[in-house]
Design a protein around this nucleic acid. Structure first.
Lengths: 155, 155
DNA sequence: ATACTTGCAAATGATTTGCCAGTGT
DNA sequence: ACACTGGCAAATCATTTGCAAGTAT
């Protein structure tokens, strides 16, 4: 029951660079694979396999099987990873975008990103308290957001 | 896509106390419900619905439907909660046991508990860095365990 | 030309829902 | 008695697997 497929992210700056890396591994650039990458590069937040299949309003949508197979391969290569922010489907992002460190409120469900500074402070605390080298790539931190804390204090 | 059902844990010291709380809410103590509680009180680690259904070698096993329905109800009351340590099924514990703060290694899959002191330090860092009141009840912290860090450094 | 890829169908694993018979209080 | 519960069947949601036909290189 491991949490991650690839430990080593493959950081690329552009779609073209990603394609070069894939070709270098003997992988082909089909239209389906291309669309998956397009959507991931266009997204400004983690997206589900369903959203990727719908592409950018593509009709008919990509087959979900192809989406999952491509995502799996892209994760193996290290270009992509996925997070679980709650009980919904897994959400995929480019490893290069370095979308790391989400906060989810247990009460109102708010999702927000941790800024880099806060992320670094927290990682430091975890490292020194546990000996683990923390990664916030697969699960969010959860708890009560400031607003919900205030509300709870009113009771 | 919230992560938790009940924000307020209901902490009890014994099975009897749990039963009193349930009765106080007009809920009945059926044999199935009783077995679910027995297993949870006996377990020294989070257990899956399947494991609960098998009870302590009970034959025939409890119907999974009943297990899930009981767990749902127990979570609503605040007696129980569940964690997701990876991609497997949800794992259930008594809220009273306060099993909070798991560490999972992304590389070797090791699962361990955070000691209270480390947990407190980390919570403090998160609180001050993010404004969130952290809870480690639903997802573990992940990263590389000391052994896997050392191994990675050898490369 | 040939191996990598796709799409469709079907399987799988976890969990939920409908429904009616059973039982705790 | 009567409402709360359990068990069985079937549905649902996310994801995976098998396989034959399609296509990038």
């Amino acid at each position: 029951m491991t949490t991650a497929r690839s430990i080593q992210p493959l950081l690329v700056d552009s779609l073209d660079e990603a394609i070069i890396e894939l070709r270098a591994r003997g992988l082909r650039i089909s239209s389906a694979r291309r669309l998956v990458l397009d959507v991931l590069f266009a997204a400004d937040r983690p997206v589900s396999a369903d959203e990727i299949a719908d592409g950018l309003g593509r009709l008919p949508p990509l087959d979900l099987t192809s989406v999952y197979r491509n995502l799996e391969m892209l994760e193996d290569v290290g270009l992509v990873r996925h997070v679980h922010l709650g009980h919904g489907p897994g959400l995929y992002t480019l490893a290069a975008t370095d979308e790391e460190g989400y906060l989810v409120c247990d009460s109102c469900g708010e999702v927000r990103r941790l800024e880099q500074g806060a992320l670094d402070e927290i990682k430091l605390a975890i490292r020194s308290a546990s000996g683990y080298e923390p990664r916030f790539t697969h699960f969010p931190l959860t708890g009560l957001c400031p607003a919900c804390v205030a509300e709870a204090d009113d009771d």
